[in-house]
Each structure stands twice: as structure tokens, then as C-alpha cells.
């Protein structure tokens, strides 16, 4: 009950500021009139009585201030006033405000971007098992800088070296369009990878299986492993999704597995992988080659 009265009184004070002010002024005016009436009853003439009542009352404005304060809205009123004042000043000095806002947004944006990369590469624990044995392979350019790799180069690395336990290749996240049955055409993120991809990274599909060496061959029927998030968001977490055919880049593709839960993407920079496709069907030449070093021999 008390809470109700408090809430009513306070919301009124805050929302109907003008009315509250008017009521306060009227209340005080009525008080003075009543005091004047009192003096008239005591035998003073009306002019004298009114003067006396007013003098007796003292400073109306400071009393109003004190009453506002008692309602606890003084701080709020001051805050509103100060905010308005600040907004007015900023609008008037727009030559100063606009560059300041732009600079601030640039600064904040740059910071956020850098932090997401640093967070992904340095702070967040690696999602891969035994990650100290994972390496990325580069071919040096003539100048000695790390160069880019291609799928044929990967094939040479995988078959002609024996220093690694397993070698895999994966493309950077690429945008593909796909369509599930008669549904809308959507755009998704795909990584093209080798059959050895899960073995090297130490991950496993949460449902179904990864593609095999046979399915990696050019000309083999297209298969895909879908991301766990795409599975829950786009396919209703339906286990029957295995064996379903979707159109990826316009080509009928059979879903054979679902990626690990919580796995976002190989390069964790904000994109979430929707499809893993066999790398032979990738269009781009850019490929990262990763490898797992053999376990150190125990002596």
C-alpha cells in the first residue's frame, strides 16, 4: 500500500513536471490568501492584510526549491537541465562536436576491431586438441617472406614429406549462396577443406561423418558437412538432415555430417562456418596448409 503511494507520488513528480510546479505554486498562493483572510478577521483592512501575509510568508521561490528538493526530484531536475544545456552547447559548436564525434567513433571502432583479432588469436584458448603440435606451412617467396599456398602445392606437401603425422589444407572463409529445398536463397560462409582436416585439428563431427578421400576427388558427387550453428538455426537441429540434398552455389550437395558444437570457424575472426566442402571443388587459389607434427618419440 505504501509502495503504491510512493510510486504514484514519484511518477507524478517526474512525469508531470509542469503540473507539479503549477500545483506547488497554487498551494503556496492559497496559503498566503488564507493568511490574509486570517489577518482580515483580526481587523486589518484587505490591502494591509495581504501585504502582511506576503511578508510573513518570506521568499516563495526558495520555499518552492526546498519543496522540490523534499520530493527528491531536485537532483533529477538538475540532471535534465544540465543535459539540455550540454546538448545545446554541442549543437551550437557543431564545428567542434562533429569532428569530435567522428574521431571518437573511429577510435572506438579501431579498438574494437583490433581487440577482436587479439582476443581470437591470443586470449581465447585454442579449440584444437594438443594445439602445441599444430603448425602452419608456408612457402617462402623469392624475397624470403611467407607466401601463399595452392591446393596442388598442398598435394605435393602431403605426399612428398614424411615429417608430419598429418597434413591438411583449408581455404579462408568464403561466401557462398545456398538453398534448402524450395526455401529462400541464403548466403553462408563456407570453408573448403581436405579429408584430413578434422584429424589434423583434433576435432570430430557431432553428427554423421567427415568426407573421405574418395569424395575429395574432382567429379565425385558433392558432399558437405554443415556447421553446428547452421544446423540448429537453419535446419531446426533435425538429425534427419543427414542425407538431405541442398543446393550450394547452385549444385546439388548431400549433407553428410554436422560440425562440432561450439566450433565457430578455423580462423576465429567473427565469421561462423556454415559449410565445409571438399577442397577440390574450391574456386580460389588461396589455401592455408596446416599440419600436425608427430608426437615426440619417448626415450
Amino acid at each position: 500500500m505504501r509502495l503504491w503511494h510512493i510510486l504514484r507520488s514519484r511518477t507524478r513528480s517526474l512525469l508531470f513536471r509542469r503540473r507539479r510546479e503549477e500545483e506547488l505554486a497554487e498551494e503556496l498562493r492559497l496559503h498566503i490568501e488564507q493568511q490574509a483572510d486570517y489577518w482580515i478577521a483580526q481587523g486589518l483592512d484587505s490591502e494591509e492584510a495581504r501585504l502582511r501575509a506576503r511578508r510573513q510568508f518570506g521568499n516563495v521561490e526558495s520555499l518552492k526549491e526546498a519543496s522540490r528538493d523534499a520530493r527528491g526530484t531536485g537532483v533529477w531536475d538538475a540532471l535534465v537541465r544540465d543535459t539540455r544545456h550540454a546538448a545545446r552547447r554541442l549543437l551550437r559548436d557543431w564545428r567542434f562536436s562533429v569532428p569530435a564525434v567522428l574521431l571518437l567513433s573511429l577510435g572506438i571502432g579501431a579498438n574494437t576491431a583490433i581487440f577482436s583479432i587479439v582476443n581470437a588469436t591470443l586470449f581465447r584458448p585454442s579449440p584444437f586438441a594438443d594445439s602445441s603440435r599444430l603448425v602452419e606451412l608456408y612457402q617462402n617467396t623469392k624475397e624470403g617472406a611467407p607466401g601463399t599456398n595452392t591446393y596442388p602445392v598442398y598435394l605435393d606437401m602431403a605426399t612428398s614429406t614424411n615429417v608430419f603425422a598429418h597434413v591438411m589444407a583449408v581455404t579462408p572463409p568464403l561466401t557462398v549462396s545456398y538453398r534448402d529445398g524450395q526455401g529462400p536463397v541464403r548466403s553462408g560462409t563456407a570453408e573448403y577443406a581436405t579429408p584430413t582436416f578434422p584429424t589434423v585439428l583434433g576435432i570430430q563431427p557431432s553428427l554423421g561423418r567427415w568426407f573421405t578421400a574418395d569424395e575429395e576427388r574432382l567429379g565425385a558427387p558433392l558432399v558437405a558437412v554443415i556447421g553446428h550453428q547452421a544446423w540448429t538455426k537453419r535446419f531446426g537441429a533435425d538429425p534427419g538432415v543427414i542425407g538431405r540434398t541442398v543446393y550450394v552455389q547452385g549444385l546439388p550437395t548431400t549433407i553428410i555430417g554436422v560440425g562440432p558444437a561450439g566450433y565457430r570457424s578455423t580462423f576465429d575472426i567473427g565469421l561462423v562456418t556454415d559449410f565445409w566442402l571438399p577442397i577440390a571443388s574450391a574456386l580460389g587459389p588461396l589455401t592455408s596448409v596446416g599440419a600436425r607434427r608427430p608426437r615426440p618419440r619417448s626415450s
Binding site: 514519484r10 513528480s13 496559503h31 526546498a66 519543496s67 522540490r68 528538493d69 523534499a70 520530493r71 527528491g72
Partner: peptide
């Protein structure tokens, strides 16, 4: 008046 308004504010 401040006292009256304070009491109202406090729900008494």
C-alpha cells in the same frame, strides 16, 4: 511545505 512534500514523497 517541504515537510509535507517529503512525507508525501515517503508515502506516509
Amino acid at each position: 511545505y517541504p515537510a509535507l512534500h517529503r512525507l508525501e514523497h515517503q508515502g506516509w
